[in-house]
């Protein structure tokens, strides 16, 4: 029992951290605790959360996916070009997602079959994806999409924005998949001890390909949402997601060594990062400073998380 209580220390600490941030922001700025701003924060967090979902699955297998930002940009740009060229929305969206999934699948093959270190394979994929996006865009920005497409990014169902609903569904689906299905348990087993999982009949190769493919898919979905929301697609749109994505996962308590963690943690991690940015904006800190503050917050948060875990054991 005592041990179970201890296991809750880190998650409780994370939530306390969020609460403290909110209180601090409320005191510092009266605009923080307004419905509009709260919804705004959540909507901003959606992209990071979605990227973090696939990434969590990858990191649970003790892997890493450095290509998420590149894939996000590539999918955004591909879909944008296709929409511009007059393709029907569903076709453009499907092709875009297929591209993201394909890059993820290739990552999976490189890691699972060819056995490259995950970090090398996905870092290479990042540069290829960004290179392809560069080719597609020729240095331009594409903007002005049909409003039915933009609805996913800016629309509302009742008082709640569409992206938040979409993200909530995805989070629930991923959490169910990872914690309540046989394949999900295989992912945890693989991350806890790859050799033991293999000896126990887990298809190490297939599972590896699966998680990277999922990560490609979620990065792609985020890419679509982002183009829909900004009503624009550009080359550098994926850039912040690499570090912030990984940081959300790790800050959410998922261990980079694999086998430990949960997507609900990732959601909290993403919200913390978004709150920090939101706070900086509300306080009028110039955007150039955000990079420094975020770097510091991430390093500190990962450090605290490691300490919490050490202490809980």
């Amino acid at each position: 029992m005592n041990r179970n209580v201890r296991a809750l220390i880190a998650p409780i600490f994370r939530l306390t951290f969020v609460a403290a941030l909110c209180i601090a922001l409320t005191i510092m700025n009266e605009n923080f605790l307004t419905w509009t701003n709260i919804i705004n924060v959540l909507r901003q967090a959606t992209l990071l959360v979605i990227v973090g979902l696939g990434l969590t699955a990858v990191i649970l297998t003790a892997g890493i996916d450095l290509s998420v930002g590149g894939v996000l940009a590539l999918v955004g740009c591909t879909t944008a070009q296709l929409l511009k060229s007059g393709l029907p929305i569903p076709v453009a969206v499907l092709i875009g997602l297929a591209v993201g999934t394909a890059v993820g699948f290739l990552n999976g093959v490189m890691v699972g079959v060819i056995k490259l270190p995950p970090f090398v394979a996905t870092y290479g994929a990042k540069w290829i994806a960004e290179g392809l996006a560069l080719l597609l865009m020729q240095g331009q920005i594409i903007f002005g999409f049909p409003s039915s497409y933009r609805w996913v990014g800016v629309g509302y169902v009742g008082p709640i924005p569409v992206p938040i609903i979409l993200t909530a569904i995805l989070v629930l689906a991923f959490d169910f998949f990872l914690t309540k299905t046989v394949v999900g348990r295989d992912i945890y087993a693989l991350g806890s001890n790859r050799d033991a999982a293999y000896y126990s009949g887990v298809s190490v190769c297939k599972i590896t390909i699966l998680v990277y493919t999922l990560s490609g898919l979620t990065a792609g979905i985020a890419g679509l949402l982002m183009t829909a929301r900004l009503d624009a697609a550009e080359l550098g749109m994926g850039e912040p997601f690499l570090m912030q994505g990984i940081a959300s996962v790790v800050m959410g308590g998922t261990s980079l060594l694999g086998g430990e963690g949960r997507v609900t943690g990732t959601v909290i991690g993403a919200i913390i990062l978004t709150l920090v940015v939101n706070g900086l904006n509300l306080m009028g800190v110039p955007a150039l400073w955000h990079q420094i503050v975020l770097g510091a917050v991430i390093l500190t948060a990962v450090f605290i998380d490691l300490q919490m875990k050490k202490w809980a054991n």
């Binding site: 690499l242 940081a247 980079l256 420094i292 770097g295 510091a296 991430i298 390093l299 990962v302």
Partner: peptide, 10 residues
């Protein structure tokens, strides 16, 4: 890689 990415981005 978290450390170097973090320090690098700072």
């Amino acid at each position: 890689f978290i450390a170097t990415l973090g320090v690098g981005s700072m």
